[in-house]
């Protein structure tokens, strides 16, 4: 990598001297002036008329993209109007999803998915706040046993919370 001084050879001397002077005593930027220059720069550059050559290039690019879209439209329309019963014709590759992450398989029977049995403390056949209340009473009386619902190795308030949070979750299927 070249030394920093080499890249400044073509600049006016006054600027080069000033830049060299930056390595001297600390010069704190004047924040107000800095912001002032920046806002002026943004305003100025944002409203400058675009370079004509650049405009033409962009028009050309725009036209090319329009043509590409037209070709895509043609393919799509052809697909819609195709005869699905035909056994001959141009092959069409299946569109593969980009950057596919492996999808999770369905829960195995012995996995920790929610079932009616797990969390149904009172055996009512459904899981609701009464199950959380039942577990809370059992814990209070020291009769909770092995009801580790969240698999943290303990039976405690967190298991009660596990039930309660589940019954109030909007996507739990709760319909009231």
């Amino acid at each position: 990598m070249p030394h920093d001084e080499e890249q400044f050879d073509t600049l006016p001397e006054t600027i080069v001297d000033a830049l060299r002077g930056l390595d001297g005593p600390a010069v704190l930027p004047d924040a107000e002036r800095d912001a002032d220059v920046l806002s002026g720069a943004r305003l100025h550059l944002a409203t400058r008329p675009p370079n004509r050559k650049r405009r033409n290039l962009k028009l050309f690019i725009g036209g090319s993209v329009g043509g590409g879209l037209a070709a895509a439209a043609m393919l799509g329309v052809a697909f819609i109007l195709s005869d699905p019963n035909a056994d001959e014709g141009l092959p069409m590759a299946d569109l593969a999803e980009q950057n596919t992450l492996p999808t999770l398989a369905e829960e195995a029977p012995n996995s920790q998915s929610l079932t009616a049995a797990r969390g149904d403390i009172d055996g009512s056949g459904s899981i609701d706040i009464l199950d959380a209340y039942a577990l809370a009473r059992r814990l209070e009386q020291g009769q909770a046993g092995e009801l580790d619902l969240n698999n943290d190795g303990q039976t405690n308030q967190r298991d009660i919370d596990w039930i309660a949070n589940q019954v109030v979750a909007l996507n739990s299927g709760e319909q009231g």
Partner: peptide, 23 residues
């Protein structure tokens, strides 16, 4: 898949769409 005879017409239609969009 079989492409039908309407394809040239469709191509013209699609090109018209592209040009109009560009304009």
């Amino acid at each position: 898949m079989k492409i039908k005879k309407q394809t040239p017409l469709l191509l013209m239609l699609a090109l018209l769409v592209g040009v109009s969009g560009w304009l």
